[in-house]
Design a protein around this nucleic acid. Structure first.
Lengths: 197, 197
DNA sequence: AAATTTTGATATCGATTCGATACGATAAAG
DNA sequence: CTTTATCGTATCGAATCGATATCAAAATTT
């Protein structure tokens, strides 16, 4: 009999393929490839420690050279903006341009997914998220790359008061909204990996 | 706050990207691209109603022309065998060649995934499978393509006796092992979508 | 039974991705 | 100050991929 983890892998692959096809459809009107849509979605979610070409390359599992080309295209189309980092001048920071944000809100690449998950209870979604996140974290352990988790489920994220959080990894203050973005240095709290969070 | 279904989508995308990179690594020694490894994995699992170029194209979310090229390469490398269907002579059937099977067993493309899921309980895997399968089925409803589920969780799969099953869709007998492969016409039983199966 | 339409698969072509490699600029280490 | 490492970009060749056209077989209609 097929081992259940393999069935799960098959589902992840297939859902990935389907969403890839959906992103292709979404982007085709504007001449964008799936990788471009994925890049825009990433930049929408990445926090200020993770909005670099390098981080995007790790997120997509591609080389930085390849990603550099995709970013060039997005820049030419005016969908993203690139600017130099103040402190480390080798680093390029990325953000969505107003057009990029408009593209996402108009096309809503996740629309199909949202429709498909409408009837699924929040509990079941949360449970699945915790399982997949555990797997992601394990894969990161074995293959070295960052896991890219949501900031507020990270061991380094400390809540100082109602509104103020602090990241003990980067040693910086975080606003509330910032703690809901995804970060390349995220290390999940053990509690956030269980089904009961 | 980010809606949980979006977090789940992000995880599926990211895991898909990572496994894609892993498949690239696996195939690189033999000059195979990720899509080729995915194709071999599909053929390993597809039942005899689903081992055609068309089904593979739907599974991968690619056009049949594109898939035809990939299959040509796999054929040239001797990893798959193609043969004409007896009844419908337009249809080409696909199967792994001995070399193809050897490739999968030697490289074990799912190895990283198996390692990463080792510590996760069978229950949690099953639960996640049921959630993702529900989503997959919903996406199929909206976008038209087949869902590719495991045969024995299908409404058309009837158990006649200890060893004999029957598919009321294709109207053919099925052996036990056959009911554990994936089929393009699979329609999940409602019970198999709940968390309690 | 003949003509039409549909379906499965392949071939060709151009655009684009992607990895490998090399390169330049900045930062860090010694 | 020299060396080394890191981040990003540029170039090139191989390969994917979609669009379109074509071919053959089956299904449908007339």
């Amino acid at each position: 009999m097929l081992k259940n983890p393999i069935v799960l892998l098959d589902l992840v692959n297939r859902l990935g393929n389907l969403m890839r096809a959906e992103f292709r459809r979404i982007g085709s009107e504007d001449g964008l490839q799936p990788v471009h849509v994925l890049s825009l979605l990433f930049l929408e979610q990445a926090n200020r420690f993770s909005n670099t070409p390098q981080a995007l390359a790790e997120y997509l599992g591609l080389t930085k050279g390849t990603v550099s080309q995709s970013l060039l295209l997005l820049d030419r189309r005016g969908l993203i903006e690139r600017y130099q980092d103040e402190i480390d001048k080798r680093v390029v920071r990325l953000r969505l341009s107003p057009q990029g944000e408009a593209f996402l809100s108009e096309t809503n690449p996740a629309g199909l997914w949202q429709t498909a998950t409408r009837e699924i209870s929040a509990n079941r979604v949360r449970y699945s998220v915790s399982v997949l996140r555990t797997i992601l974290y394990e894969i990161q352990n074995f293959s070295g790359g960052p896991a890219f988790g949501v900031c507020n489920t990270c061991v380094y994220c400390q809540r100082k008061s109602q509104r103020i959080h602090h990241c003990t990894w980067f040693g910086e203050r975080l606003s509330g909204p910032e703690t809901r973005k995804i970060c390349r240095e995220q290390v999940p709290k053990t509690g956030s990996l269980s089904a009961s969070d």
